[in-house]
Amino acid sequence: MTEIIQTFDSIDRGYSLLYCDLWGCLHDGQCAFPEAVAALERFRARGGRVVLLTNSPRPGRDVAVQLEGLGAPRSCYDLIVSSGDAAQAAMAAGQFGRRVYHIGPERDLGFFRDDAGRPYDIERVPLGEAEGIVCTGLFDDRAETPADYRATILEGKIRGLRLLCANPDIVVDVGDLRIFCAGAIAAAYSEAGGQSYYFGKPHPPIYALARAKMAEMLGFETPADEILCLGDGIATDILGAMGEGLDALFVAGGLAAEETGTSRAAGPDPALLRTYLAAARLAPKLAIAYLR
């Protein structure tokens, strides 16, 4: 049975490490949520550590710059681990060839550079010359849908190109606008018979990277029963946490606000929440309306 809590401060003090999702939990793509920032700062003030675990295709260093612009201060987290971080290693190793076709906006070009700003030994080429596909998003996620990529998907599938998905999310909400992410392209590619490879939540690579980076920072590995995963994506954050054997706190007011009857004024509705989780066949330990 999933327990509904009102505030983050009411969680068991036995958790020493939080894996916190970003979009829909800490910010909405336009600005940070002040209550969420304050909740994370209070957790850190009492000795907890916060890893911002995000399916952003951007490397963690670029996510940090984005967060500063959104109003999320450095004081609310210890470390950022992104899907982009986890996927970069595979790309740099040549697992998708040295000549790749990039699907994604110009703002994601940092994916092709290392932490020192040096370009990887990877060349971006037209689809007809590519040895693999790297998808960080849609070219224009405000106007396009996966249907606009039918020809690209068909050609890639026919040529047997493997697709690296740098962000497994299907959709995110930017303010009141819901937009498609790289995960939607990867899903369409798989449905067409192509091979898609994922590195972010709910898949293991991002969790392995988070554990390794935190162990390096702390000098020891945090026991699994001291880690709590927080997120609003039932098929990413919650499924990933449970797949890793970690406790999860579901933020009902994110992507599933309508389905769970959650608003800033009230919710989640217990009956609607039970129905939603039963349909997903997942049972996170805790649920909250918003991170606060």
Rank of each mutant, 00 (worst) to 15 (best):
Y77C: 11
F250P: 00
P223R: 01
C135K: 01
T7L: 03
D269F: 02
G84D: 14
P146Y: 13
G160I: 10
I185L: 08
R42I: 07
E259T: 03
A235Q: 07
L177V: 07
A289L: 09
P168C: 14
F139V: 02
S263C: 07
C20Q: 14
F33W: 11
T275N: 07
D140L: 00
E131A: 06
G97Q: 06
D141A: 08
R264V: 11
D237F: 04
T275G: 04
G160S: 12
M214W: 03
A186R: 05
G14D: 11
C135D: 01
K157A: 15
C25L: 13
E3V: 08
D28K: 02
K157V: 15
G14F: 03
S75W: 06
A188V: 02
C31M: 11
R113V: 01
L17K: 10
G231R: 01
G175V: 00
G117T: 01
G97A: 04
P204R: 10
L246A: 10
S56N: 11
F139R: 08
P126L: 05
I11W: 10
A166W: 06
S263Q: 06
M217L: 12
F180S: 03
E191Q: 14
A93S: 10
P270F: 10
P59K: 02
I153K: 12
D148K: 03
A64C: 10
A130Q: 05
A248W: 00
A86P: 03
D148I: 02
L164D: 13
L161D: 15
A278L: 04
S263P: 02
F111C: 05
I5T: 10
A89R: 13
A151M: 13
I11M: 13
T275W: 02
V134A: 09
Q195Y: 13
R58H: 15
V134Q: 04
G117P: 00
V100E: 13
T54S: 13
L109N: 09
L291I: 06
G200N: 10
L17F: 15
V251R: 05
R178L: 10
V134E: 11
A208V: 08
A188S: 12
R107P: 04
L246R: 07
R124K: 11
Y19M: 14
T54V: 01
P223E: 05
F250E: 03
V125T: 08
D225A: 02
E129I: 00
S56Q: 03
L218T: 04
Y197M: 15
A45C: 10
R162G: 15
G132T: 06
L277R: 00
R264G: 15
P105E: 10
K201F: 14
T260K: 08
Y149I: 10
R281C: 13
T275D: 12
L291Q: 09
